Amino acid sequence: MNFSRRAIVALMAAGTTALSLVATPSLAQDAYPDKPVRIVVGFAPGGTNDIVARVIATKLTERLKQSFIVDNKPGANSAIGNDLVAKSKPDGYTLLVSASGGLTVNPVLTANLPHDPTKDYEPIALLGTFPLVVTVNPSLPVDNLSQLIDYARKNKGGTLDHGVAASSFQLVAELLANTAGVKFNHINYRGSGPTVIALMGGEIQVAVLDSAAVMAQVKAGKLKALAVTTAKRAAALPDLPTAAEAGVAGYDVPIWSAFMAPKGTPEPVLAKLRAAMKDILAEKDMVDRLHALGMDPGNTDGPALMRRISTDIERWKVVAKNANMKPE
C-alpha cells in the first residue's frame, strides 16, 4: 500500500497526539507534587491531629520539595473538614489528617453524614495511636480517678460537666462513665484547644482529652491529669496510671490518627506519599516527637487501616447503643 507524503505526515502527527494523551497523566503523576499541597485538619489548632499534621507537613515539604500546608477546617466534630476532602478532586493536592473519631464515630453519631469513610477515601498511613487523658481543673479536690468518681457521687449527684473536643472523645468518656457508674453532662467545644481553655477557666469540671493538648498545662500545674484511657501507660506520662489501674477494671480505649486522600487518587501519587511516610514514620526524630505526644508510631499498611476503620465503626455502634446515644 502506497501513502502520499502528506498522508504519512498526518499519520505521524495523529500518532504523536495519541501518545501525548496517553503519556500526559503519567508524566503529571511522576512530577507530583508540582504545586502546594493542602492538608486539611477538621479541628481548631492545638490538638494532637493539628500538631502531627504540622510535623508531617514540614517533613513532606523537605522530602518532596514542595509546600505542604495545613488548613484547619473545624466544625461538626471534624465532619466539615473530612467531607471537604472526601469531595475534593482526587489528584493528591488535597489530603486529610483525621482523628479516628472523624472516620469511625461520625458515621455512628452523625445523622445523614454526607460521606462514607469506608468508601470515600484512599489510605496513606496510620500516623499513630495514643491514649486520652482524664483531666480536671486543679481546684477540684481530687488526686486520682477513684477520688473523682467518689466526688461525683457524693457532691454532684453522680454527674460531672464534661468538655467534648471531638465525638470520639465523647464516646470514650461515656464508656468510662458507664463503666465507673457515674454520668457526664457533655458540653461541646470546637476542638481540644478550646476545651482546655474551658477546663482551665472552670466552665467544666472534667475533660477526656488527647495528651498532646494537655501535657504542657499538666506539667505547669494548670490542669491535673488523673489517668490514661489505654491498658498501657503513656510514654510521655509514665507516672500517670491507666484507668484500669485506677479502679475501672478492663477499660482500654486507644485513639488514633490517619493520613488519607480522596477516593480515586492515582496509585502512583499514593505510592509516592506512602513511600515518603514510611521513611518519615521511621525517622528517629519523628518517633521521638510522636512519643513526646504520647503516641506510638503507625505504618503505611493501607488495607489494615481500612479494616481498622470498619472494625471501629462496629465497636462504636455497640457503645453508642448501650449509652443510648443516637445520631444527631
Score class of each variant (00 low, 15 high):
286 M>D: 09
52 V>R: 07
182 V>E: 07
24 T>M: 02
122 E>A: 14
51 I>E: 12
163 G>C: 01
23 A>T: 10
314 E>N: 11
35 K>Q: 11
158 G>C: 05
51 I>K: 12
220 A>G: 04
13 A>F: 11
179 T>M: 07
6 R>M: 07
173 A>C: 08
98 S>M: 03
93 Y>R: 05
101 G>V: 01
136 V>G: 03
12 M>D: 07
197 I>M: 15
7 A>G: 09
172 V>D: 13
19 L>G: 13
218 V>G: 07
22 V>Y: 06
200 M>N: 06
165 A>R: 01
104 T>L: 04
63 R>I: 04
155 N>M: 14
246 A>C: 07
207 A>I: 02
131 P>L: 00
267 E>A: 04
67 S>V: 09
290 L>H: 04
270 L>V: 12
235 A>I: 12
191 G>V: 01
196 V>F: 02
128 G>D: 04
195 T>R: 00
253 V>Y: 12
64 L>Q: 05
290 L>W: 04
82 N>A: 08
10 A>C: 08
212 A>E: 09
141 P>G: 13
59 K>Y: 14
49 N>D: 08
262 P>V: 06
181 G>K: 09
157 G>I: 11
311 T>Y: 11
301 D>E: 09
267 E>Q: 12
32 Y>S: 11
272 K>Q: 12
160 L>D: 12
57 A>E: 03
